[in-house]
Design a protein around this nucleic acid. Structure first.
Lengths: 213, 213
DNA sequence: GTTCGGTACTGGACCGTACAGTACTTGTTT
DNA sequence: AAACAAGTACTGTACGGTCCAGTACCGAAC
């Protein structure tokens, strides 16, 4: 139990522990209540920390917000790696379907949806943060699709004139209905896995009908 | 000039005039700065009206917000009528393309985008308003597509298993990239008419590749 | 067309509350 | 001992909503 190299070090100094508690508390509050709807007193209370400690770690509310948002895009890379692997597929239809199912599963998670709503809501107040978030999360995913489809086109498996647009088409063929609704309705999980799979499958079907050679 | 029946009566009482000024001012402010970002003092000032007058016309800030949002979906019917007409088309590809170009033109307008962002932002605070808005605007449009495609399928021009999903596919094939970006970036009009047409045309191409008989 | 009364509107003071951020004093950890 | 954190009181400000004293508007009566 005295390992040194841990991804999440258990030997975490008091300060670091407090800092993490603050970030976790603030993340939850921001996601649920938005920027203006979250007070620093709430953050301190939920983190079980004094307000001073909050301000010792983060100069002000804006910086806390920025740090949290840009820290919330960590796991995007996991998905884009999976996308990249698709370029070498031996069974396009099958693997594209598998990818689509993964995609919608990730994107439809309450966390992801809340983040998206939060950024859209605050795009006016924090244009730079919204832009950065877009580039790191949805944008990066679209870019991964773009690269992948370009390679599949080079292999002769797809016929694509405008790769970025094809990537957007793929993404939105899958997300279309659930994402649109999720933006306006709460995050009560309103879709069963079977429904999500249906969205994924139909999206892939349409995509291949238009883009397969 | 003494006509009685006018759609917009030029003889508009003082009260009605003030009320309209308040709604216009508040609309602009809410769209630009959001609900929390707009103060009643600002509304009164921009409307060139006293705060009392605001509160005489609207019981409180929430009701003002609700009235504005639900009043902003007036012109949706104009578009859905156009959609309905498509059901009797003699040249599907041409008319669908025309419809798609109209669709993206309307949806990409700054007003529409701001409204969408505002509702998404406030979905947590005003779930009922967000739901109503969705049903009146994007939802109603999708429904119009659904009905139309169903009829086209009955005529043997399309092959559709899941009409509502096909409607979502159509909508998002067209909007995909510009809408996604518009949600996160400001409303600096970032697309030329030519680009919008490209989105419309490509969306229609993909749609027909997958759904035409 | 002048007078009159009711209603709407103005302008600004005002109340209570909430919140970002600071100051300071008293523990607590290492 | 020295840095860190708790707790809490405090400052300044912004905002929603109300109140009130006075003014402009408008339609009816004369």
């Amino acid at each position: 139990m005295t390992d040194v190299a841990q991804t999440t070090p258990q030997v975490e100094g008091r300060s670091a522990r407090k800092r993490r508690a603050i970030m976790e508390a603030a993340t939850g509050l921001f996601l649920r209540n938005g920027y203006q709807g979250t007070s620093m007193d709430e953050v301190a209370a939920l983190a079980a920390v004094s307000k001073q400690t909050v301000y010792k770690n983060f100069t002000d509310k804006e910086q806390l917000f920025r740090d949290i948002i840009l820290g919330a895009t960590d796991r995007v890379g996991e998905f884009t790696e999976v996308v990249a692997q698709l370029a070498g597929t031996e069974d396009l239809e099958e693997d594209l379907g598998e990818l689509a199912r993964r995609y919608i599963t990730v994107v439809i998670q309450p966390r992801t949806l809340q983040l998206r709503r939060l950024l859209i809501a605050e795009a006016g107040r924090f244009p730079a943060v919204a832009r950065d978030y877009y580039q790191r999360a949805p944008g990066r995913t679209i870019d991964a699709f773009t690269d992948c489809f370009q390679k599949l086109a080079d292999r002769g498996l797809l016929r694509i004139d405008d790769p970025p647009l094809a990537a957007s088409h793929f993404a939105w063929l899958i997300l279309s209905q659930p994402m649109d609704k999720a933006m306006f309705f709460g995050d009560e999980q309103q879709y069963t896995p079977a429904e999500l799979q249906h969205f994924a499958d139909e999206g892939v079907r349409v995509f291949l009908a238009a883009y397969r050679t």
